[in-house]
Write a protein that binds this DNA or RNA. Structure first.
Length: 664
DNA sequence: GTTTACGCATCCCCG
DNA sequence: ATGCGTAAAC
């Protein structure tokens, strides 16, 4: 006779769970589960490194959809668009395709879409142009010259500095005057001029339907704050809001979240105060501290079980962050108690450091650790230069993340400027760039030509009608391009192909030494462009989410060998590897010598914490003991102060010994 | 008066 | 390697 087992249900809630296909309680730990099933009302999830934050978000999306929420009413805001796409893909795999319809993206991409659709009440056309940081700097430079500030005896700050201050004022929601008095007091003498420059900058953008990154947030905030009907409409449209990486949001973004949640307060913020590393662009790690104040009655859940690293690694990372001045108390733990203790490697000099890293990587490969499971992390992009050479010697292939992106290279910007004027002939900044590329045309001639083109219904005709001069040949070519461009707008692939033909001679003239190398970047750009259906989408994406490949990636090309990762710590956020080397952990490099406030030093500490928590099995800190830095005029070589906070017994110190020469 | 060529300092992290 | 200021060349 067959006996059927009778399963006792654990409790009543299990009955309710029965209507769900996913066994949430079994697949998640208690804290994660609590976060996933708390769908209504404000919720803050403080998620330590490697505690399954993404998993929790993915399951929560699935849970909402499975409980019958219309997926288009869910909004998932993340740090990069790639992150949200990845989460929604995982949610779809978990549940079904409905999860793909969830609205996801960055604050900036969400603002972009929303403003194109609802921005009319603010006087915005749906066709506004987005300026990237470089574009903004160019505009500022132009206006600065117009004001005659470039010829002052007293040195006026340069365009990057000005752009940074203007941006800070926005992202910290503080008036420019106050910001300069408090944080840029060395520029106090220029206060009046800076304020006027900012006004002109704002007016310039408004007249031309230009929005920079900061404007996207400001305008979205204005839309929600000043227009209560639109606010309700949007709040009702997005009934469930989730914000990832909340520790890296700024004051303005917190306001946007609050307003979007005004009708329902179904807002979940996820983040880790210990990993807040973006204050240099206005992020305020107090956002995550103040969330309960922003949403009174908010539930707070901490995720502390770490699934990534061994306990010996966590002991070290816990002690690094334990010395922080202010934080959400939490102690990460792992069930993986076994593992080698992290290793500290004082190297004689930079060359020894590079040699050690290479040698250990070769050994790891012998031990069966694939290269793609190994990463070398550093504070600043240039810290890896010496290592890159050493890696090449040993035939170790790598990709480098962070640092200069190929999208920022001059020749890529040139090409983009051409696409821009074809789409928007009123874009005088891009015109200027395009024109001054031509032989014999400098700032002066460019301005003169622009006078004719500005506001004209048919810019191509204007170009052709210009009085014949020695450069008329080039201008005719440009006019021809402009005339034909309309037919290519639906095919960015063809558009870029035609542009490359036109640009090729210019490239050769401007970069006689290395144009073949640059040509490769341009081809890479062409393949990216080919993925788009429309040229305007290409442009919006290049501004909002430029490809993160650095120039050297493009060169490394499509060899699909397994690759070692070199990365700045900022670009390594959210990633993990079997073995992690953190190089240059020396005073003056990490923490950087440029730090000049306690707040900044605290952020350096969090940065070290982020770096160390990337390691799953093995972790190495290395630094050169004797290094003379010419630019600083000092001798580096003292171990980073963050390593000093680690109890002696948690770290193992390695002494490098040169192999004795073999004379036999 | 303009443009260009050249030498000089500067350079973190980024949507 | 880029971005600036200055001096030579058109």
């Amino acid at each position: 006779m067959e006996t059927n087992k009778y399963v006792l249900r654990r409790d009543r809630s299990a009955d309710r769970e029965a209507r769900y296909r996913i066994a949430y309680a079994e697949e998640l730990n208690p804290a994660q589960h609590q976060a996933v099933v708390s769908t209504d009302g404000p919720l803050l999830v403080v998620a330590g490194a490697g505690t399954g934050k993404t998993r929790t978000l993915v399951y929560r999306v699935a849970r909402l959809v499975e409980s019958g929420v219309d997926p288009t009413q869910i909004l998932l805001l993340t740090f990069t668009r790639k992150a949200s796409a990845e989460m929604l893909r995982r949610a779809s795999n978990l549940l079904d395709g409905r999860c793909d319809q969830v609205s996801g993206g960055t604050f900036h991409s969400f603002a972009n879409l929303t403003l194109r659709r609802y921005g009319k009440v603010l006087g915005l056309h749906s066709s506004f142009t987005i300026l990237d940081r470089g574009d903004s700097e160019d505009v500022i430079n132009l206006l600065r010259a117009h004001m005659g500030l470039d010829k002052k005896e007293r040195r006026f700050p340069r365009k990057q500095a000005i752009a940074e201050i203007f941006s800070m004022a926005v992202n910290k929601s503080r008036p420019l005057a106050e910001l300069i008095e408090v944080e840029y007091s060395h520029l106090i003498d220029h206060l009046a001029e800076l304020i006027e420059l900012q006004q002109r900058f704002t007016a310039f953008k408004a007249e031309r339907q230009l929005l920079d990154y900061d404007d996207l947030l400001i305008k979205l905030w204005q839309l929600l704050d000043l227009h209560s009907e639109t606010r309700s409409q949007l709040s009702l449209r997005y009934r469930y809001i989730m914000v990832d990486e909340y520790q890296d949001t700024n004051a303005l973004q917190a306001e946007i979240v609050r307003l979007l949640g005004s009708e329902h307060r179904n807002v979940m913020a996820v983040g880790d105060d210990a990993q807040s590393i973006y204050s240099f662009r206005g992020a305020d790690f107090r956002n995550i501290m103040d969330f309960p104040a922003l949403f009174p009655g908010a539930q707070v859940i901490a995720l502390e079980e770490n699934y990534r690293s061994t306990q010996p690694i966590l002991d070290v990372t816990n002690s690094i962050i334990g010395a922080a001045r202010e934080r959400h108390e939490k102690q990460l733990f792992s069930r993986r108690s076994e593992g080698r203790p992290p290793i500290l490697v004082p190297a004689e000099n930079e060359h020894f450091q590079s040699r050690f890293v290479c040698q250990r990587i070769l050994e790891l490969r012998e031990e069966g650790v694939p290269l793609e499971q190994i990463a070398v992390l550093f504070r600043s992009s240039f810290h890896s230069f010496a290592l890159e050479i050493e890696l090449a010697h040993h035939d170790l292939p790598f990709i480098k993340r962070g640092g200069f992106k190929f999208i920022e290279a001059a020749h890529i910007k040139d090409l983009l400027a051409h696409v821009r004027i074809l789409l928007n002939p009123q874009d005088s900044i891009s015109w200027h760039r395009v024109l001054t590329l031509l032989e014999g045309i400098g700032p002066r001639a460019s301005e003169e030509i622009l006078q004719h083109v500005q506001g004209a219904a048919d810019p191509a005709a204007q170009l052709e009608q210009l009085p014949a001069r020695k450069y008329s040949h080039d201008l005719r070519l440009l006019a021809g391009l402009l005339r034909q461009s309309q037919q290519w707008l639906q095919s960015p692939e063809q558009l870029v192909a035609e542009l490359l033909q036109y640009y090729e001679p210019i490239l050769k003239r401007a970069y006689p030494e290395d144009h073949p190398k640059r040509r490769k970047d341009l081809d890479h750009f062409a393949t990216i462009a080919a993925r788009y259906q429309r040229a305007d989408q290409l442009l919006a994406d290049m501004a909002l989410e430029p490809p993160t490949d650095s120039v050297s990636d493009v060169l490394a090309g499509d060899r699909d060998d397994e690759l070692l990762t070199l990365s700045t710590i900022h670009s390594a956020k959210g990633l993990e590897w079997h073995t992690v080397f953190i190089i240059w952990t020396a005073e003056g490099r990490f923490p950087s010598a440029y730090i000049n406030s306690e707040e900044e030093m605290e952020e350096e500490r969090r940065l070290m914490y982020v770096a160390a928590t990337r390691a799953k099995q093995e972790l190495y800190f290395s630094y050169p003991v004797y290094i003379f830095d010419r630019s600083l005029g000092t001798i580096l070589g003292k171990a980073s102060r963050f390593l000093e906070d680690i109890p002696e017994q948690l770290l193992r110190r390695l002494v490098l010994v040169e192999e004795p020469a073999d004379y036999s």
